[in-house]
């Protein structure tokens, strides 16, 4: 697995730039990852990211947009506003989690 430097730190990422070790994640890193993809974090963004992190900790897999809507209470439409065009990918990228599957 390749390593890269984000927010002055050495972190392990996959070939699309997603963190491969969720424990290397913290909020400073998340803000930097968000900037990389042109997103400025607001409280609304943080609320979604926090849900994804907590959900991953209990479920062991990344929540899909459907789950972020149904369980997290953030409607898919809002996810598209906060993380334009590719919410599933962008949310997991910022949250330092693997891309959700369901895509097979």
């Amino acid at each position: 697995m390749p390593n890269t430097t984000i927010a002055g730190r050495d972190v392990a990422v996959d070939d699309e730039g997603f963190l491969t070790d969720p424990s290397q994640w913290d909020e400073t890193l998340a803000a930097e990852l968000a900037t990389n993809i042109g997103i400025e974090m607001t409280d609304d963004h943080w609320a979604v990211i926090k849900f994804l992190r907590d959900d991953y900790a209990t479920q062991g897999e990344t929540a899909t947009t459907r789950r972020v809507d149904k369980v997290g209470g953030f409607p898919v439409k809002q996810q598209f506003v906060l993380f334009p065009k590719k919410p599933a990918k962008k949310m997991s990228y910022i949250a330092g989690l693997p891309k959700p599957h369901g895509c097979v």
């Binding site: 390749p2 070939d15 699309e16 730039g17 990389n36 065009k85 590719k86 990918k89 962008k90």
Partner: peptide
């Protein structure tokens, strides 16, 4: 090539 430039990976996320 895997990770040839950071820009390229980010392209995928954008």
């Amino acid at each position: 090539p895997v990770l040839d430039s950071t820009d390229k990976e980010l392209e995928a996320v954008r």
